[in-house]
Amino acid sequence: MPTNNPSRIAEILARHQQAILEDWLLAQLAAFSARHNLISEADLRRQSADFIGIFGTACQAGTLTDIATPAWQPVRDFLASISRSRASQGFSPSETATFVFSLKQPLFAHIRQELAANAESLADEMWTATVLIDKLGLYTTELFQTAREEVIKRQQMEMLELSTPVVKLWDGILAVPLIGTLDSARTQVVMESLLQSIVDTGSNIAIVDITGVPTVDTLIAQNLLKTAAAARLMGAQCIICGIRPQIAQTMVHLGVAFGEVVTRATLADALAFAFREIGCTVSRQAPRN
């Protein structure tokens, strides 16, 4: 049972800091032998030395049974930054947790050595150390998962943006060729980036080409029409082209709610319409011969 005597872990840690650090590094290097490409030994050494320092200070200042107390704030912050950087470096959750868990062996070895003569206190301290390191390990894993989710979410957004290039066809005319399945999230990203491009380029015509979209359900048709309405509020005109007959039906039906929208069968038709709108004429030069 935890006694009221202050724990001796802090003192043991302080006295054997260097030795514990070396043993800990060896344990980590063994575990990460396959991961030299992800982190250099020098970085690992620096991180580990920093952590031992901060960890030792927290052990001296705070209670060892509650890592939520202010004394453990620096340790929590440190672990947060480690989890975040490892999540983005491509470490797995268990590899990240290993950073903390692999400290157990070296720490236990030195506790055992120090307290060999006092079985009862040895058991107490081992118990305290186990619980403490498990808590820190779990904390790291949780943080890692959150950080990883953020990375994935960001990558998804980036992919969405990449897969929907807004191109400038002519001075004042933008186009987005949509290819592949349109779900609600993707439609939203496309539309937001289209509207932003309208502002950035000062274009007043935007052509949305859905030739490459296999199916357009009512929800997507509705999103397209909402975008057209938003573009109009901003002072631009949206033309939707590449529309199959049955989708055209849906559009007309929904158009009642969102105001008229210009639709054309093909990109060429849409472009011809756009040219007329901005007062451009396209003419073929007389053949030379």
């Binding site: 502002v199 000062g202 007043n204 938003a230 109009r232 509020l233 901003m234 002072g235 969102f258 105001g259």
Partner: peptide, 25 residues
């Protein structure tokens, strides 16, 4: 100069401003 986020929100809100004449800048 209506911002994209504002325009999207107006459409979702259901506010009909089709009587307004608008321009990009």
């Amino acid at each position: 100069g209506m911002r994209p986020a504002v325009a999207i929100t107006i459409v979702e809100l259901g506010l009909d401003l089709s009587c307004l004449r608008t321009a990009i800048n």
